[in-house]
Design a protein around this nucleic acid. Structure first.
Lengths: 226, 226
DNA sequence: GTCTATAACATGATAGAC
DNA sequence: GTCTATCATGTTATAGAC
């Protein structure tokens, strides 16, 4: 009696469709690639593509989620005990490298981040889980610094927003090997890391409390479960 | 001999189309309003609508430009000699009031700001003029504070970005009379104005130079003519 | 449950006649 | 300048084959 296959046939087809779609997106851009193109290139019918991905956006979202998983895997292999600057630099630079091959997809994905009502947005209900996990990466990175819980929550969100801004920059960065984006990361961290150190001191506690109060009134601290 | 009409017929038709479109956008939202809806409601053919506005986005852009003009007109009537906080508050709150009736349009317009390649983006070549004029409003508002030219340029851009962020927030703000957005403005200015005062002191000059250098390397200071 | 073939629809956009 | 006809594409629907 032969063993049942480890992966379901449907999972193979789904992955095949996603891979084909990503390859086409990379080659021709998101908008220029039609669902019919994807179906034909996959050797499947249009209806099949829609059977697995209810919309073209669903393909975008699948890329987004898969990418988050890839970055998490990388992070698990990071050496422990590195200083903050090195750890954040590693995280940001790796994130750029993970995303860069699909850089053109960012052009389709990032604009839609702005609208929390858009399911594809990192601010939406639908992506709450992915977002929470992304923020958790930054929380973990700064955890050893021994700030208060409130400060750490604020700092992690700030870093997450910075990382979105860097990705927005990356989306239109045409410099070879995305040098400009990497440079921007270094410059930004040169500024941010000393500020993070400052954020741990009691002197700025009132200021941080003011910022937190503002964000809470605006419902912007509850990102993790909006 | 009768006088030739002051305004060309084509200009009347164009304005009629734009007014009709904005009314529909307000009532049903941008996405839910089709070009056919606009043409029918205007009593014109679909092709005619496209003759005047080469795309649905062009209608968005026309709204954006007209709005900038409206805000500029308001600003010209501001009293002179007000303290910085009052002046900025007036500017931000008025901007919200100007935009609020077309709030749903923001949902369509703002996401696209992120992509500088998008003509509708405030970062694009096409909107360079509107953007320069928007930044100029903030430059003028802080001009009496007597900072160095470099500091003023940086501060004006920071305020412009803050104003975009506020508009992004406004786009999904469903509180009555947009109270939350107005509150966010006050909270943000409570934070920003003291920082602006700080920015005028020599102590922070090196920090500002560092920020400026970063933005210049990333081509982000040349916003006005990218 | 997986996939095909085919048609049809809605809508942004374009072409060409008048 | 204005119209009608037409296209391209995201999406839905149907009727099945295996």
């Amino acid at each position: 009696m032969t063993r049942a296959p480890q992966v379901k046939k449907s999972e193979v087809t789904r992955q095949h469709l996603l891979d084909t779609a990503l390859a086409l997106f990379r080659k021709r851009g998101f908008d220029a690639t039609t669902m019919r193109d994807i179906a034909v290139a996959s050797g499947l019918a249009l209806g099949t593509a829609y059977y697995y991905f209810p919309s073209k956006d669903a393909l975008l979202f699948a890329f987004y989620a898969a990418n988050q998983v890839a970055t998490e895997a990388r992070v698990r292999s990071y050496p422990a005990g590195e200083p903050l600057r090195a750890r954040l630099g590693r995280l940001f630079h790796d994130r750029i490298r993970d995303v860069a091959p699909n850089r053109t997809l960012l052009g389709a994905l990032l604009p839609r981040q702005v609208n929390p009502g858009d399911p594809v947005s990192a601010l939406s209900r639908e992506s709450a889980e992915v977002r929470a996990r992304a923020i958790a990466l930054f929380e973990a990175a700064i955890a050893p610094e021994g700030m208060s819980i409130a400060t750490r929550a604020l700092a992690a969100r700030a870093l997450w927003v910075l990382h979105l801004a860097i990705l927005a920059y990356l989306a239109s960065d045409r410099s070879p090997a995305q040098r400009k984006s990497h440079r921007l990361v270094d410059d930004a961290l040169d500024l941010a890391v000393p500020l993070l150190a400052l954020a741990g001191t009691p002197a700025v506690t009132p200021l941080l409390a003011q910022v937190t109060a503002m964000l809470q009134r605006a419902d912007l601290m509850t990102l993790a479960r909006r």
